[in-house]
Write a protein that binds this DNA or RNA. Sequence first.
DNA 1: AGCTTCGCCTGCTTGC
DNA 2: TGCAAGCAGGCGAAGC
Length: 270
Amino acid sequence: MPELPEVETFVRSLQPRLPGRRVTHTRLRHADLYRRGSLRLTSLVGRIVERVERVGKNIVIRFHPGGVMLVNLGMTGRLVAWPGEGGADDVHGGKHLHVRIRFADDGELRYYDARRFGHFYVAEKCNFEQLGIGPDPFLLKPRGLQAALSGRSASVKSLLLNQRVVSGIGNIYADETLFCAGIHPARSGDYAAPQAAALLRHSRVVLRRAIEHGGSTLRDYRRPDGTPGGYQSHHAVYGRAGLPCLRCGTSIERIVLAGRGTHFCPRCQR
DNA sequence: AGCTTCGCCTGCTTGC
DNA sequence: TGCAAGCAGGCGAAGC
């Protein structure tokens, strides 16, 4: 599931390939792909890609002389330039190809999404806060996270998953961060608030390492070139229920918290 | 207001 | 072996 490291992997592939290209046609299969309030993709025709960046789990494409497109990949979305590198085109046999943005040079930006949980948002300008996209973990200050956690009775895990609190952390990296920080996922935000600096530090270490490995592939996710990411083999707790903790040997537990499968070491995380 | 649960959507896994 | 039910999960909406 594309979280920050997986989205960053897509952005790093797109950034050297899209800028300078002019949009000539757009095609979208289902209008329900648009997030509420979005302009149509056709409004981008004639505009030139300026740059590709990432905010939290969102891919942000900015255009000249104006306009911005946000893509949230949901669970199984893939945003790739076509033709792709090394036969990686049509990874789903074209069955799940939902958006095609054609450029003047005949190349395309393609969006595939098997489960259609992803969303597009097109606007002249966008305000991330209004869209519910909070600060990126690499920009958020320890004090900011502390303030966002203190006084909150919700579990620290659900707050890490809350994109308004910090954007980019999803189920895998929330579990991994909490393990590194030694905090039980069911603890309240208020309890964890004094440890905000450590939480933030650990989240950055985990996210940076995951980016270096091209993200985590559990099932659907593939890097832009079609190869799986490599970070899943470095998970300490996620997907390791019943296996021994790498630090103390205690069996890793799995519970459901905030509606998500949650993995932790009952001895290392208190 | 804050928190939890639900539903969207589809493919893979599990169980009868 | 085959089919139906269960499960996974980001995120917005609904409910408490």
